[in-house]
């Protein structure tokens, strides 16, 4: 029951914290993250949403409404183009929940699920931005210069933050 758990405060606070950290880290480390031709995109907010799906257990956080709300804010505040992340974030939650049911819950399997999630997020954002002519890379350039560094960064973040977030959920439960 979310109503009785401390997560009803902890989850939204963490969500917004990770959302703002995405922008702040991109700004502070802009030389390292956006050094031509490679671009690393920070998706910490996806990390938080996916970890919530991993660790929620019996609490059942309403993740899809939260994901839609976060998508709206991400679109309006960061990109200014409405309609991309509002669809991607809830899709990621559905995908993660499907995969959790299919795979055993271990650290390596969760890493694999997160790998798939980030690939889907980056690819869909690339397709969306190509439609409105914002992204001008070809598909192979996208794989090499955008997807690969993004995966490296986000998986590293996942490895660093997985156990702290698990411990946090254990405490807030």
């Amino acid at each position: 029951m979310l109503r009785l758990s401390k997560l009803r405060y902890g989850f939204p606070i963490g969500l917004f914290l990770f959302f703002f950290l995405d922008g702040s880290l991109s700004k502070v480390f802009s030389n390292q993250m956006f050094s031509y031709p490679y671009t690393m995109v920070s998706y910490l907010v996806v990390l938080w949403l996916v970890c919530a799906a991993f660790f929620e257990g019996t609490i059942a956080i309403p993740l899809i409404p939260w994901a839609i709300a976060m998508g709206v804010i991400f679109d309006l505040y960061y990109t200014g183009i409405f309609g991309i992340f509002i669809a991607i974030f809830p899709l990621i939650i559905m995908l993660t929940r499907t995969l959790i049911r299919a795979l055993p819950q271990t650290f390596l399997m969760n890493l694999l699920i997160f790998f798939i999630d980030i690939t889907v997020v980056a690819t869909l954002s690339y397709i969306g931005n190509s439609i409105i002519h914002q992204a001008s890379l070809t598909a192979s350039e996208f794989l090499l210069y955008s997807l690969a560094p993004t995966l490296a960064y986000n998986l590293a973040m996942f490895v660093i933050l997985y156990f702290p977030i698990q411990a946090l959920y254990g405490r807030l439960r």
Binding site: K27, T79, S125, A135
Partner: peptide
């Protein structure tokens, strides 16, 4: 500057 858009396609700051 408060933050920067985390995106491969936009070089945009807020």
């Amino acid at each position: 500057v408060i933050s920067r858009t985390p995106s491969s396609w936009q070089s945009q700051v807020i």
